[in-house]
Design a protein around this nucleic acid. Sequence first.
DNA 1: GCATTACGCTACGACTCGTAGCGAAAGCCC
DNA 2: GGGCTTTCGCTACGAGTCGTAGCGTAATGC
Lengths: 219, 219
Amino acid sequence: MAQNGGYGRGMQIRTPVCRTGRPRSAAADTAILAATRAALVELGWSKLTLGDVATRAGVAKTTLYRRWPGKNELVVDAVAELFGELELPDRGSLAADIEGVVLQFAAILARPEAKSGLMAVVAESTRDDALRERIRASIVDPQKDLVLEGRARAQTRGELPTETDPEEAARTVDLIFDVVAGAVVHRTLVSAEPADEEWVRDFTRVLLLGLTASAPERF
Amino acid sequence: MAQNGGYGRGMQIRTPVCRTGRPRSAAADTAILAATRAALVELGWSKLTLGDVATRAGVAKTTLYRRWPGKNELVVDAVAELFGELELPDRGSLAADIEGVVLQFAAILARPEAKSGLMAVVAESTRDDALRERIRASIVDPQKDLVLEGRARAQTRGELPTETDPEEAARTVDLIFDVVAGAVVHRTLVSAEPADEEWVRDFTRVLLLGLTASAPERF
DNA sequence: GCATTACGCTACGACTCGTAGCGAAAGCCC
DNA sequence: GGGCTTTCGCTACGAGTCGTAGCGTAATGC
C-alpha cells in the first residue's frame, strides 16, 4: 500500500485528512498502541497477532486494519512512542551530556517491548523501503537530532572542533550516531548485558577521546 | 523444547549422537541451510515458511522438523555459516587489522540474507534464552574471539597497553566488541548506508584514538 | 435532517503450523 | 545375506492466523 501523502510530523503519520463524517477516536489510537506494547512484552514479536492486540485494546480487528497497513507499521508506531521520551538537557559538559542521553537510551532499550519490537521491525525494514522510511522518520531522525544538538552545544563550549567542510561534518555526525546507538543496542540485545553506569562511563571515555584527540593539530 | 545435551562445537549442535541405523544425510543439511538463505533473500524473515524451505531444499517438511526445533534455530544456523568466513590475518598494525576485519564484517552484513536473518533472530532471542545461547555460541563468541586475538596481537606489538586487572581487561574487550560490531550493524541496518572504506577509515581512526589515548600516563 | 465517515460484529477462503502415521530406504553388525 | 535400527518421503489432519467483505449502527459537520 502506497503511503497516502502529506505526513504530519512525529506520530501523526497516516489519516488522509478528512473533515466531514465521524472522526476517528483518538482514545482508540492510544489504547491500540499501548495494547501493542503489552502484547510485545507477553508474546514477543513473532507470536504477536493483530487479533490479540485488537482484543486487548477493546476495539474490533477491522478498526486496526483501517488505521495501519499491517503488523510492521503498528509496531513501529508503538515503539516510536517509547523513544519519544528521549531528551538532551544541558548537563554542563559533553561527557555529561553523552552519559546522560546514553543512560536514557539504555533505560528504554532495557524494556522488553523495546527489545523485541525494535530489532524485529529493523529486520523487516531491510526488505521494505516504505517501512524503513517510516522507522527513519519516527525513530531514527529524532535520535540523530539529539546528536546534532549535543554536538552544536559542545562546539560552542569549545569541546569539539568546528568542521569547515559541511559534508565532512555530516559524515562525522552520522559516524557518532552509529557508534553511540549501535554500541548501546549491541550491548543490550546481542551481548544481552545491561548498559549500566559503569559501562556508559567506559564507553563515553573511549568515544570522547576518539573525538577530541582527532583535532588535527593541538599543542 | 529443551536442548538435547552434548553440544559439539561450532555448527555441530543437535544430533544426539547415534551410531547405528541409517545416518542422516549431510547433503540434506547443507541443502536446507542454503535453501533457508535463499528464502531469506527472496521472502525475508516474516514471510519465510518452513514448508517453502523444505520444497526448495528438496526434502520433506517433516525432515526439517526432525532436525531443527523451529524457524528461529534454523535461521541461526543458516546465518552462522555466513559469519564463519570471518578471519583476522595479520596485516601488520592494529589499525590495518581493525579495518580489515570490519570490512569483512560489513561485506557479510551487506548480503540480504544476513541483514534480514540476523536481526530477526536477535529480536526473538530477547524472549528465548535457549535461542540466545545458540546465537552466542555459534555467532557472537567466534566474533569476540577475533577481538581477543587482535587485541593480544596489538599488545605484543606495543600498540595497546596491557591491563593488569584481568577483570578490567575483560570489560575492555566486551566494550570494544560492542562498539565495533554495534557500529557496523547500526550503520548497515538502521542507517541503511554502506560501511564502505571511507566510513571504516573514519571509524577506525576514532576507535583507535579512543583506545590508545586512554593509556593513563604517557610522555 | 442529511450526507459522510468510523465503528463493532460476523463470516469467510486461504494459508501456515506442527504432528502423526505409514511404508520404503539406507546404513551397521552378526 | 539376514536382521536391526534409524531416517526419509509422503499424506493427512485439527488448530490457528490472515486480511477482507458485508452489514447495521454511532458520531460528527453542514
